[in-house]
Design a protein around this nucleic acid. Structure first.
Length: 577
RNA sequence: GCGGAAUUAGCUCAGCUGGAUAGAGCGCCGGUCUACGAAACCGGAGGUCGCAGGUUCGACUCCUGCAUUCCGCGCCA
């Protein structure tokens, strides 16, 4: 029977250990309050930790120390009273009081091994929760300008943003992934001028080369395609090169289509899919930009100075006021930005997360200020931001600064070509976004446990290999049969693997809550290590049948959790390597 | 100068809303296959958590100051 088939069984109590214990302790505290020992309950639920040292039990609680002072009782004495008052239960085998007043709980082994049943019954649903309750959240990420191929920074944004989206989905949110296309600003004119210049045979060294022209080799490709009358499929329409170097509008349209297509192909190779592409130009077409300006003026947050129109962002915490409309008449970028975010709000997204490079940090205050100025009820901290720091690429001990395609920055495509999609995604998401990231190409290519991607994927392949072998020996009934013998999973390596499997729902919930997907990457590394230790210590396909069956069930559960965890990172879980 | 981020073992990094003797991989030293995949495992050495104060039962974690590195600071996006 497959794990899928098992999932039809009665839905078990999926409550994890921490809240279960917290409830027991709260009951005890209520009892102590009614006995007059305590004056009242604490404000928050008791804090339950997993101690690092196994001799401190499976779970520990500091509540006695927290309440001791207010109760006028020594922490250790209060701990004793809490333990004595704890209701009867099957979760806890015994408790200790340790150090200054920690209560250490030793969980009944059947609760550890029982997770195997839960995992096999839940299948890919194991680890998911519904804390999001189906609420909508929009995640905007990548949002690169269509002026060149995606660089490694966009890659990091793509990896983090997509993984965040997956985490939010796993915790019950309804997620919309959006890409904002800056197709209307000055940089697009520079793009068109650059293509025009290339079409005229000029290079960056030519005296008439545009001032802020794009110098990458890809511009030559675009110019050549334009002159050859090639057709480019971009989003919903097809653009054909007009081959007319005087028609700047035609060049612009064609060039944007070319680069947009290239970015789409990069994202496809990176396994990232967006629900919506939002075009900046549409904000001008719909009048939303004008409307934003009018609204801000009407609200009295603007002033004119030196022929320019300014927004008094200092009223909303900015360190200086910002120009909205330049003296030459055009708008600065942040006006459409405000209009865009207002549009998100109007679309009903009460929660919006923007994932961007930290070099855009200064826009946060500005955009939020503009939104506050609109006075339409948008909360001060809206939208949320996740900022990632820079990525540098190392290869053979030296920083890589050049890319063939761009002549400059290293592209996402370069990384995918060098190390593959899986390794690229893993490495770009495995560090805290706030940390600068060094992408070591040689490490990502290594096929040993110095490379976490292969280490984790290898653990998955090993699981599959053992399960396959077991099926060859005696069909596929072993796994389900093992559920009756989980008590045999009692060796230290086996139990610690089971305990790690039991942590998965906490890890997912916590990573989603904190918007930090790298927690999942770290967890998987540890889980794989636990599995490899178990695997080396105990032969699965030997010994008495009941033990073998129980271990097979454990292996099947491990395979499921590794696969589910990797899926949250957008990394594949191969059956063989 | 202002704002943001960072500073933990030789290297690359974890450290969950403050919790017990600060963890992992690599590298280094030493072990484990007539094989359920050794792409693995086991053991050892290695740290004043940038510095100095403060908060408290308790600080890598919170607060203040300082130092260093990175990123922003345009009528660019």
């Amino acid at each position: 029977m497959s794990p899928r088939a098992l999932a039809t069984r009665v839905d078990r109590d999926r409550m994890t250990m921490k809240p279960e214990l917290a409830a027991l302790i709260t009951t005890a505290l209520e009892q102590l309050v009614s006995q007059g020992v305590l004056a009242g309950l604490p404000d928050a639920a008791p804090q339950i930790d997993r101690p690092k040292d196994p001799s401190h039990g499976d779970l520990s609680c500091n509540i006695a120390m927290v309440l001791a002072k207010r109760a006028g009782i020594a922490p250790r004495d209060l701990a004793t009273q809490i333990i004595d008052t704890l209701p009867d239960n099957t979760l806890i085998d015994r408790c200790d009081i340790a150090g200054p007043g920690f209560i250490n709980f030793f969980v009944n082994a059947s609760h550890h091994t029982g997770v195997v049943r839960t995992i096999l019954e839940s299948g890919s649903d194991y680890g998911k929760s519904d804390s999001g309750a189906g609420r909508q959240v929009q995640v905007e990420f990548v949002s690169a300008n269509p002026t060149g191929p995606l660089h490694v920074g966009h890659g990091r944004g793509a990896a983090i943003g997509d993984s965040l989206s997956r985490l939010l989905e796993a915790t019950g949110w309804s997620v919309q992934r959006e890409f904002y296309y800056n197709d209307a600003g000055q940089q697009i004119n520079n793009l068109a001028l650059s293509v025009q210049a290339r079409g005229q045979g000029k290079g960056p060294d030519h005296p008439d080369w545009p001032a802020d022209g794009y110098q990458g080799g890809y511009i030559e490709d675009v110019a050549a395609a334009y002159m050859a009358g090639d057709s480019v499929q971009a989003a919903d329409r097809e653009i054909t090169g007009a081959a007319d170097l005087d028609d700047l509008d035609a060049i612009r349209e064609f060039a944007v289509a070319c680069l947009r297509r290239e970015q789409d192909q990069d994202l496809q190779a990176f396994q990232v899919v967006f629900d919506k592409y939002f075009l900046e130009s549409s904000l001008y077409d719909s009048g939303a930009v004008e409307e934003t300006v009018t609204t801000l003026q009407a609200a009295g947050h603007t002033f004119e100075d030196q022929d320019a129109l300014w927004l008094r962002t200092t009223d909303f915490g900015d360190d200086k006021d910002r120009v909205m409309r330049k003296s030459e008449g055009g708008y600065t970028y942040f006006v459409p930005d405000v209009a865009y975010h207002h549009n998100k709000w109007q679309r009903g997204y009460q929660r919006v997360i923007n994932e961007q490079g930290a070099d855009h940090h200064s826009t946060i205050t500005r955009v939020r200020a503009g939104l506050q100025g609109l006075n339409v009820g948008i909360p001060e901290g809206w939208p949320e931001y996740v900022l990632h720091q820079m990525v540098t690429v190392m290869r053979e001990g030296a920083e890589v600064k050049l890319s063939k395609r761009t002549g400059g920055y290293v592209t996402l495509r370069d990384l995918i070509d060098w190390v593959g999609c899986d390794a690229t995604r893993y490495f770009l998401v495995a560090r805290a976004p706030t940390s600068q990231l060094t992408f070591d190409v040689d490490l990502a290519l290594a096929r040993s446990n110095e490379n976490p991607v292969y280490y984790i994927q290898y653990a998955h392949a090993r699981c599959v290999s053992v399960l396959r072998k077991a099926t060859e020996i005696a069909g596929d009934a072993h796994v389900s049969a093992g559920l009756a013998h989980l008590a045999r999973l009692d060796e230290p390596e086996t139990l610690s693997l089971a305990i790690s499997l039991g942590r998965f729902p906490e890890v997912v919930a916590n990573a989603a809550e904190r918007l930090e997907p790298h927690d999942v990457a770290n967890y998987l590394r540890e889980l794989a290590a636990d599995f490899h230790s178990f695997y080396n210590a105990h032969k699965v396909l030997e010994g008495v049948p009941e033990t073998m069956q129980a271990r097979l069930a454990l292996v099947a559960a491990t395979r499921q959790v590794i696969a589910s965890g990797l899926a949250l990172l957008g990394v594949s879980a191969p059956d063989a390597m």
